[in-house]
Design a protein around this nucleic acid. Structure first.
Lengths: 147, 147
DNA sequence: CATGGGTCATTAGTGTACCTAAACACCAGT
DNA sequence: ACTGGTGTTTAGGTACACTAATGACCCATG
């Protein structure tokens, strides 16, 4: 369709362009993953626990727009590796609160820094306006993702 | 605001923000997928074949930054579903050219349109300025992904 | 022209991450 | 004490990526 002047990769309109860029970045992130470490999702969850404190399974699954069952699995990888623990909610015993262990907190920080290293390097090489453009686009696209 | 990536105070640095946004969008795309249809990767490959004509396995895997073996699997899903076919390259018989069948071409167009529908709807609701911001960010991030 | 090194594609086996469906435990209202 | 709703888990299945190993082919060199 409309081949706009922005160097269209594969998709037709802006939607296709966004989709294609996101898919490419996502794969790139995955390939940049240090060996022997946790998966992308598990690490995101760990980071979230570290930053926002203990949360229930449904809180986590809602945030990631994932079925509770999927999140249960992801969290299992964390708990069985000793990076997170379950605690029954004293007020409502159907609920389970997940929180990081000290090792989990440490890993969250270390792994995240390492993983963002190459990305940050590239981003810092851009002009401040370009960085600002990306920051703004993240907000806009984040809103769409949450809609 | 967050101007730092290594010792982030509250929010993540720009790198973390980008990573998080991309992951969320990616999951959202996946969840928006109509049932019984092909996966995201397979569909991207099919679209690419449809737009750029027959290609070899390595061309496809290079483009998606994926191991050849992974791409082999993906195209297997396409061929066994009747959406693509293999043709031996007459010039170099180590190579195999993949191309879409008529049904594949049809599906590529239909599915892609359907998949971009909600995304395009949201994007068109933004101001032209914001759309431009996103387009620019896509180019910038696309370059980083390809680096 | 044969052999051997490089390239292209595939198969086999593994791991992560998602899904649905179904079970189980618990809370609250009638 | 049922009953319906909520929160979590288990079981089974799919998609997509990886590494390692294999087979098929091209080309160059001896």
């Amino acid at each position: 369709m409309e081949t706009d002047a922005t160097g269209t990769p594969d998709g037709a309109g802006l939607g296709g362009q966004v989709r294609s860029t996101v898919a490419r970045l996502y794969r790139r992130f995955r390939s940049e993953r240090p060996e022997g470490s946790l998966g992308d999702t598990a690490l995101e969850v760990l980071t979230r626990l570290h930053k926002h404190g203990p949360q229930t399974l449904t809180q986590l699954s809602d945030h990631d727009r994932v079925a509770p069952a999927s999140m249960s699995q992801s969290v299992n990888r964390l708990t069985s590796a000793g990076y997170a623990i379950r605690t029954p909610d004293p007020n409502d015993r159907r609920k389970v609160l997940f929180s990081t262990t000290p090792q989990g907190a440490e890993l969250a920080h270390a792994a995240r820094t390492q993983r963002n290293a190459w990305l940050d390097a590239h981003l810092h090489a851009l002009s401040p306006e370009d960085q600002n453009t990306i920051a703004r686009a993240c907000v806009l696209l984040g809103n769409i993702a949450d809609s």
